[in-house]
């Protein structure tokens, strides 16, 4: 497998990130600039997706919403990964009696309805990529911990790790050279799936709008706000919807099960 093929599954994600990051350079006026003289304008070169009911540029809003969505997804995955690995480390470090309750705690984290927790957190402190990530990461932390514990138990008993320890390798050395390379690929694969799930949850949160700042150009909020214009200006709904779809598919591409990271065959 050549590197070009290995990185190809990152292409859609890279393209979308570039497009969304272009949203950072969109002048603030275009995102929030109200211009009642050009309400519901048809698509043009100046406004590729037209303008909304108060004359804001829809493309600029979709791009700006994309940056917030990417931040929310990245933060959620990062929190889940750190908390999950910490939980797993705690499990490995704890005596036998404490291990079962810790596993039950991970089960509980996986079973908690994350959207509901996120709604309550958003109601308490307001909806932002940070607050949403803190709540949505709970489930991810549980599943990462499970995965690391499961894989780590196997890896700790594997021949190379035992050999490295017998040769006097420090724990850091064993972790860096033997454990991390074994554990990383499956965890990253799961994170790819998780990214799509988190993106949909973030969209749902912004759609429901609990504790949200209604001026923020989030994709879910845009669909909620523009759904009245489904007939007179369908692009207003289609733009953010297509953006969610494209980013979710890009996440699915990254987590493609046929990629070399997984040896399991595709069932269908």
């Amino acid at each position: 497998m050549t590197p070009a093929v290995r990185y190809r599954r990152w292409l859609p994600m890279a393209a979308l990130c570039t497009l969304a990051l272009a949203g950072i350079w969109v002048p603030e006026a275009a995102v929030h600039g109200v211009d009642l003289d050009r309400r519901l304008a048809a698509p043009s070169l100046a406004h590729p997706l037209g303008t909304d009911s108060v004359g804001r540029d829809v493309f600029a809003r979709v791009a700006a919403g994309g940056v917030r969505a990417l931040v929310a997804v990245a933060l959620t995955l990062a929190f889940g990964l750190v908390a999950g690995v910490a939980l797993a480390a705690l499990w490995f470090a704890s005596p036998r009696g404490l291990r079962a309750p810790l596993l039950r705690l991970c089960d509980l984290a996986v079973g908690v309805p994350s959207l509901l927790v996120a709604l309550i957190v958003a109601g308490a402190v307001g909806l932002s990529p940070l607050s949403a990530a803190l709540a949505l990461a709970v489930g991810g932390a549980g599943s990462v911990a499970h995965l690391v514990i499961e894989l780590g138990r196997g890896a700790a008993r594997s021949l190379p790790v035992m050999a490295a320890r017998a040769l006097g390798g420090t724990p850091l050395h064993v972790f860096r050279r033997h454990l991390a390379p074994t554990l990383a690929p499956p965890i990253l694969l799961v994170q790819g799936y998780e990214a799509g799930r988190v993106l949909l949850a973030w969209s749902a949160l912004t759609f429901l709008g609990v504790g949200a700042d209604t001026g923020q150009p989030d994709w879910g909020a845009m669909v909620f706000e523009y759904r009245m214009h489904l007939f007179d200006a369908p692009l207003l709904v289609l733009g953010p919807s297509a953006a969610i779809l494209a980013l979710a598919l890009a996440c699915a591409c990254v987590a493609d099960p046929r990629a070399p990271a997984s040896t399991a065959g595709d069932p269908d």
Partner: peptide, 17 residues
């Protein structure tokens, strides 16, 4: 397969609309 993809990539509110 299509249903699984739908649940993975399309938010429920878009499908609902």
């Amino acid at each position: 397969r299509m249903l699984a993809l739908l649940a993975q990539a399309v938010p429920a509110f878009v499908a609902g609309l």
